[in-house]
């Protein structure tokens, strides 16, 4: 009985803490054409808690971000910052540590505050490597409407570590 109680406490504690996080984001940005645009976006992103390094490239149309070892940053917050600067956030290449689950044949990777639905476009060889539990994965998050970000994403996996 005591062991069951311990397991319940550990389980509840586990749910209450961060079960995963994004560690790297290369965010595609459309519509950014000038140096002050890049400067403003870079400065806005640097103000976000959890971002360790930020570099914005006008020619690539991308914001390259390395996240702190402990962060609660959402991809949604990053894309909202892009929109706030007057641009459009498109696809994002991310690396994240998350909890992999399978429901009705569909794989999901969950961080502490967002859910990534694994796309059927993911190569089958990679899907076969996926197992339930903690996983470190990289992939391309598909573009969502800037005005309707829900924190639920579709991701095409490119790597499972």
């Amino acid at each position: 009985m005591r062991n069951i109680f311990r397991i319940m406490i550990i389980g509840l504690f586990g749910i209450g803490t961060a079960s995963g996080q994004i560690t790297k984001v290369d965010q595609e940005v459309y519509g950014m054409d000038c140096a002050p645009c890049a400067y403003g976006l870079e400065r806005g992103l640097k103000k976000m808690d959890g971002l360790q390094e930020v570099r914005v490239s006008l020619n690539d149309g991308k914001a390259y971000m390395g996240l702190a070892a402990e962060n609660g940053l959402k991809l949604r917050s990053i894309q909202e910052e892009v929109k706030k600067n007057g641009f459009s956030a498109k696809k994002a290449e991310v690396t994240l540590i998350g909890n992999a689950t399978k429901e009705d044949g569909q794989w999901y990777i969950e961080t502490a505050n967002e859910r990534f639905s694994v796309s059927q476009d993911t190569p089958k060889a990679l899907l076969q490597k996926l197992t339930v539990g903690t996983a470190t994965i990289s992939g391309t998050v598909q573009d969502e409407e800037d005005d309707n970000l829900s924190g639920q994403w579709s991701i095409v996996l490119t790597k499972i570590e």
Binding site: P36, Y39, G40, L41, R43, G44, K84, N85, G86
Partner: peptide, 23 residues
């Protein structure tokens, strides 16, 4: 205010860029 930038255009003619929110 928070500060962000937005594009910058011509000197005399009408243009379209607006600042970032809070810029």
């Amino acid at each position: 205010g928070t500060a962000m930038a937005q594009g910058h255009g011509p000197l005399y003619g009408l243009q379209t860029p607006t600042l970032a929110k809070g810029g």
